[in-house]
Amino acid sequence: MSRNPGRPLSPHLTIWKWGPAMAVSILHRATGVGLAIAGGLGFVWWLVAAATSADAYATFLAVATSWFGYLVLIGLTWAFFQHMCSGLRHFVLDTGAGYDLRTNKIGAFATMVVSVLLTLLVWAPILLMARH
């Protein structure tokens, strides 16, 4: 890409002060890519293993219930809820609502709080039961 050095550059990402809206925007992308690759591959592995044999499924289950498996599953659960909340926020923004600074900031912040709460709601009972 060639550019005319005589022309001004548009402001780069690095000069902006980080706010919740920017964080949620890049989180939406990061969680989306994470879900698409790790979630997609895990989902296909789960189904193919189940359709292949009890042994193949046992291998899947052994990996999924190892500490690493739990880490990935908890991560995917959070990524799903973050992407979901952020996606719901996008639906609101699509209608043209929620752009004034205060509402926009609160909305962005809320997606992060709700995604963590929903992840806890799913995993706290599972992890508590596993200990007993």
Binding site: L41, V44, L47, A51, S53, A54
Partner: peptide
């Protein structure tokens, strides 16, 4: 290729199980 291949594998596996092809 990833999206179509992954979806095909998943759907075939579900159908195989649903139609009783897995003990």
């Amino acid at each position: 290729f990833y999206a179509i291949g992954g979806a095909a594998l998943a759907i075939f596996s579900i159908l195989k199980i649903a139609f009783g092809g897995v003990l």
